[in-house]
Design a protein around this nucleic acid. Structure first.
Length: 325
DNA sequence: CAGTGTTTATTTTGGA
DNA sequence: TCCAAAATAAACACTG
């Protein structure tokens, strides 16, 4: 049994499916959408295991993006040069890993009508969602630029925007990295807790993170790869921002298959724990101490329109989807 | 041309 | 042990 903190451990395959890794990456950025290359980067930056055999796993990842309805493609606007589209989570995919296992979902998320006459309405709904995301991204960017007086390249700043968002909102998308990390592993409670504390401070301590999430970094990478990682605030984990209202869609959690306990609040982590994944319940209401240091925080947060107001109809209510298999 | 995206087929594996 | 989800492989179209 490899022990936390050991180099050997960090090279192991992380206990996440491509779907969960991708969802993690998408949820980890304020815009809640990323181009393929950024998803790759997110994963490679954090999991040494994926720095090898890139052809193989990246092909698998692309397969997943196309194959799974929980991922939607969002076209680039003319002012967003680059190859490929942005990828986002389907507004209704909810907590696909409510069972606590990030390896396998209980049910695959499928959009209704994938093979029947409902398809046409789907197109419309998706485009609405896409438009919404684009608008949000645009708003955020201009807000940031206004606040900082600088013009920053979009994607490279994406992760920075995240830190220090006001703790006004409580909901956190299931895929928010903080949630994922917290649920992760059956680490001794105390350990996970200390990790979260450092996380909420906006600057997780390396050794703590490494201990709690060993496969995320190898002991030397932090220093050696400081450059790439420094692009992201605090290891690329926009701790506070994730989901909050701000960014993305009205992230209304929709359990794939409603269960008595799953709606106990998001906050609420699954009650029946998977035998192999004990989920620290404290996580849900982890203290939202925040770094009041980011200017864009106030700006973006004070944005008048709430997501649901922006759309005439909330995507989460108009989009029809269901877990199917 | 390289990166991106889609699709089909097959194998592996988690979990009931 | 069985089933469905996930992983893997690979062909192929499209695009900047």
């Amino acid at each position: 049994m490899p022990r936390p903190g050991r180099n050997t451990y960090s090279d192991q395959k992380p206990p996440y499916s491509y779907i969960s890794l991708t969802a993690m990456a998408i949820q980890g950025c304020p815009e809640k959408m990323l181009p393929l290359s950024e998803i790759y980067k997110f994963i490679m930056d954090r999991f040494p295991y994926y720095r090898e055999n890139t052809q193989r796993w990246q092909n698998s990842l692309r397969h997943n993006l196309s194959f799974n309805d929980c991922f939607i493609k969002i076209p680039r606007r003319p002012d967003q040069p680059g190859k490929g589209s942005f990828w986002a989570l389907h507004p209704s995919c909810g907590d696909m890993f409510e069972n606590g296992s990030f390896l396998r979902r209980r049910k695959r998320f499928k959009v209704l009508g994938a093979s029947d006459h409902l398809v046409q309405s789907m197109g419309k709904q998706q485009s609405e969602a896409a438009h919404y995301l684009q608008q949000q991204a645009k708003l955020r960017l201009s807000a940031l630029q206004a606040a900082t007086g600088t013009h920053l390249p979009q994607m490279s700043t994406a992760y920075n925007l995240g830190v220090g968002v006001t703790p006004s909102s409580t909901f956190k998308h299931p895929f928010a990295i903080e949630n994922i990390i917290a649920r992760e592993y059956k680490v001794p409670g105390s350990l996970a807790f200390s990790t979260m504390q450092s996380m909420s401070a906006g600057y997780p301590l390396h050794n703590q993170l490494t201990t709690a999430w060993p496969h995320m970094y190898n002991t030397t990478s932090m220093i050696d790869t400081a450059a790439p990682i420094s692009d992201y605030s605090a290891y690329g984990v926009p701790i506070k921002s994730l989901c909050h209202g701000g960014p993305a869609l009205p992230a209304i959690p929709v359990p794939i298959k409603p269960t008595p306990t799953s709606m106990a609040g998001f906050s609420a982590l699954p009650h029946h724990h998977h035998p192999h994944h004990h989920i620290p319940a404290f996580l849900s209401n982890s203290p939202q101490s925040l770094s009041p240091t980011s200017p864009q925080t106030a700006t973006s947060q004070s944005s008048p329109a709430t997501p649901s107001e922006t759309l005439t109809t909330s995507p989460s209510t108009t989009l029809q989807s269901v877990a199917v298999h």
